[in-house]
Amino acid sequence: MILINLLPHREAARKRQKDQFFTQLGLSVLLGGVISGAVFTWYQGQIASQQDRNRFLQTEIAKLDAEIKDIANLQREIASLRARQAAVENLQGDRNLPVHLLDELAAHLPDGVYLSSMKQENQSVLLVGVAQSQERVSELLRNLSNNSSWLVRPDLVEIVAASTGATGRDQRRVSNFSLRVSLKRPSVAAPAASGSAVPAAAVPGKV
Rank of each mutant, 00 (worst) to 15 (best):
A79I: 06
S80V: 04
R82F: 03
A83K: 14
Q85K: 14
Q85W: 06
A86M: 06
A87P: 07
E89F: 05
E89P: 05
N90G: 11
N90T: 13
L91A: 15
Q92F: 15
G93M: 02
N96R: 14
P98W: 01
H100N: 07
L101K: 01
L102M: 12
E104T: 10
E104C: 04
L105N: 00
L105V: 08
A106W: 10
A106N: 15
A106Q: 13
L109I: 11
L109G: 04
Y114C: 03
Y114R: 13
E121S: 15
N122D: 13
N122C: 04
N122F: 05
Q123N: 13
Q123A: 15
L126K: 12
L127E: 02
V128Q: 04
V128P: 00
V130Y: 00
A131K: 08
A131G: 10
Q132A: 04
S133K: 07
S133P: 01
Q134S: 14
R136I: 07
R142G: 04
R142S: 09
R142K: 08
N143T: 03
L144W: 00
N146P: 04
N147F: 09
N147W: 06
N147V: 05
N147E: 07
S148K: 00
S149A: 07
S149L: 06
S149T: 11
W150S: 03
L151D: 00
P154V: 00
D155I: 06
D155H: 14
L156G: 06
L156A: 06
V157P: 00
V157R: 11
V157K: 10
E158N: 09
E158K: 09
I159T: 08
I159S: 14
A161G: 15
A161E: 15
A161L: 08
A162P: 02
S163F: 11
S163P: 06
A166G: 12
A166R: 09
T167C: 05
G168Y: 03
R169N: 09
Q171D: 02
Q171M: 11
R172E: 02
R172C: 04
N176Y: 05
S178T: 02
L179D: 01
R180N: 10
S182M: 14
K184G: 04
R185P: 05
S187H: 09
A189W: 00
P191M: 13
A193S: 12
S194C: 13
S194F: 11
G195D: 12
G195P: 10
S196H: 08
A197K: 05
V198S: 12
P199V: 07
P199M: 02
A201Q: 11
